[in-house]
Design a protein around this nucleic acid. Sequence first.
DNA 1: AGTAAACTGTATATTTGCTATACACCTATG
DNA 2: CATAGGTGTATAGCAAATATACAGTTTACT
Lengths: 149, 149
Amino acid sequence: MKNDKELAWLMERIIHKYIQYEKIPQQYCDGLVLTQPEIHTIAIIGDNEGINVTALAKTRGITKGAASQMIYKLRDKGLVEKRVSPDSDAELNLFLTEMGKKAREEHLNRYKTNGEKFASILNSVPKEAKKAMVEFFEAFEKELDRISG
Amino acid sequence: MKNDKELAWLMERIIHKYIQYEKIPQQYCDGLVLTQPEIHTIAIIGDNEGINVTALAKTRGITKGAASQMIYKLRDKGLVEKRVSPDSDAELNLFLTEMGKKAREEHLNRYKTNGEKFASILNSVPKEAKKAMVEFFEAFEKELDRISG
DNA sequence: AGTAAACTGTATATTTGCTATACACCTATG
DNA sequence: CATAGGTGTATAGCAAATATACAGTTTACT
């Protein structure tokens, strides 16, 4: 049986593999290829119609400048629309175009499919063990929050 | 109790948090700050004294060009040394300098400390559940290998 | 009302880590 | 001994992000 250290290594290796996989740009509808940061931004706007640039930056965990640039790129690709806020001329509200919504939909579907694959693997895990896993991950997350902040 | 989907989300969130944490450049001895790719390269050279550029690139999963550039950077920082291979004039053998070894040592210690924190969290996981986790992760890794390659 | 502070988004230059392409050099195989 | 394949490298370019500075807008204060 593997010891704790080996289990930790296994987890680390998997995390890196997963991230490596995520980095590969994916094809969405009609020849549209989007990178991870792009589709992530689209997902956030889709989940928060009318969000502004500052809030988007905060959600993504990047600077306002970076968010602004990403928005320009997605607008040029015809995926995102900028509208001046009805409340303030200094503020922009962000929306998905029809095409943006289509990509978002596609992304959600893929996410769901992956989640189902996940779930089918998880399915073979006994209930007791699953409970222990949740507890473990929550402790792990707490530790990550501690050392990061 | 959380269902499978929620557990999947929890895992995804943690993976991203962990990667985010890893991205922060860390300080090693006397004001030396190293990024993740840098210290990762140093770790590989430390574990494989005399490795050549091509093998390093393969281990890191990057192109030879990228590895070459990284080596130049680390050499300029005084952490890595290049020596022409005694077997072939076309080949270089890579070694850590004293300073490189110091950084490597520091990294190992930190890794160990993190691992211990990890282990103490893992410690509270029942043995049966741990076994299930290993099985789950191995299935997960297999799935990742399948969709990536 | 008038002004300063704080917040909006943006422009610009720079950085990091990588790829792709082309290349010069060395080695091995026929 | 030629040529195919393996070394490492130079160079240009890209994606994503930071840092800095800035112009315009809103808020707060007196």
